[in-house]
């Protein structure tokens, strides 16, 4: 692994994004707009007695779901394009190692996710009065780690996709079960035991829990840091698996 090659690759991916202003605009503003829709949906619905307003809970969770989903999709398509355009074959003959390549992708889309998260969190806390007890900076941090998880899983999934049609369909397969079981739709303690066990091994669960910790507590809690570490660890594991499944020699 070489830091300069990782940086060169990350820079190249960001430059590709810069030449695609519409994608850049969508990455930056879409999550904020969708969050606005949720805000309007719940604005006039009274909070359940003794509980926080629904939008505060759902909106906060969405700040973790958006970057995960978007970055998963964008990366799996980007990597598939790299494969079909022949650039991947060429890269594999250069001094660039497979891990350099994947880390470059992770870094570039991590930066993009950072911009996205700053915009979305700012819009959410000012325009939509999303109530977060803890620091908005921590929300951004969790969103970025979550985005990198999406990038890593997207890179891994793209190794199993032979066409764009297949790649796009990996999205619901990877994302929806994690979304259903993360504790947003049904609180985790009310799930059947075996569902809870599955939920325990899905990384998005920890991202959502970390966000809820920031939402409820003014200072960073130990649980939050542990959750962030779990998500980051899962992302690194997925990157390592993606590097291992990326074959230099193909038939």
């Amino acid at each position: 692994m070489t830091a300069t090659l990782t940086a060169a690759t990350g820079g190249r991916v960001l430059r590709q994004l810069r030449h695609d202003p519409r994608t850049l605009a969508m990455l930056t503003v879409l999550p904020g707009l969708l969050l606005g829709l949720l805000y309007l949906l719940w604005r006039d619905v009274p909070a359940p007695p003794g509980q926080q307003p629904v939008f505060d809970r759902v909106g906060l969770t969405m700040l973790g779901i958006f970057p995960f989903v978007v970055m998963f999709l964008v990366t799996s398509i980007a990597m598939l394009r790299e494969r079909t355009s022949g650039t991947l074959e060429r890269l594999l003959t250069t001094p660039l190692s497979r891990l350099d390549l994947l880390l470059g992708y992770g870094a570039a889309f991590g930066v993009a996710a950072g911009v996205q998260a700053v915009v979305t969190v700012t819009v959410a806390t000012t325009l939509y009065d999303l109530d977060v007890a803890g620091s908005p900076g921590l929300v951004v941090l969790i969103a970025v780690v979550d985005a990198v998880l999406g990038v890593a899983l997207g890179l891994l999934a793209s190794a199993f996709a032979r066409s764009e049609f297949q790649a796009v369909q990996f999205m619901p397969v990877v994302v929806l079960p994690q979304f259903f079981l993360c504790g947003l739709l049904v609180p985790r303690e009310q799930m059947a035991g075996w569902l809870q066990a599955i939920s325990d091994v899905l990384p998005l669960t920890y991202a959502v829990e970390a966000l809820q910790e920031v939402g409820a507590s003014e200072t960073a809690t130990a649980t939050m840091w542990r959750d962030v570490a779990v998500v980051a660890g899962a992302a690194l594991l997925a990157l390592a698996l993606a590097a291992a499944t990326l074959r230099r020699r193909t038939s």
């Binding site: 430059r15 030449h19 022949g86 650039t87």
Partner: peptide
């Protein structure tokens, strides 16, 4: 190695492509 189909980044400029491959070497 130069593949049969041109394998460079269509969404980068000529210079950006070359700077990237130069950096790899």
């Amino acid at each position: 190695y130069v593949t049969q189909e041109p394998s460079v980044y269509a969404d980068l400029t000529v210079r950006e492509n070359l700077r990237y491959f130069a950096a790899l070497y």
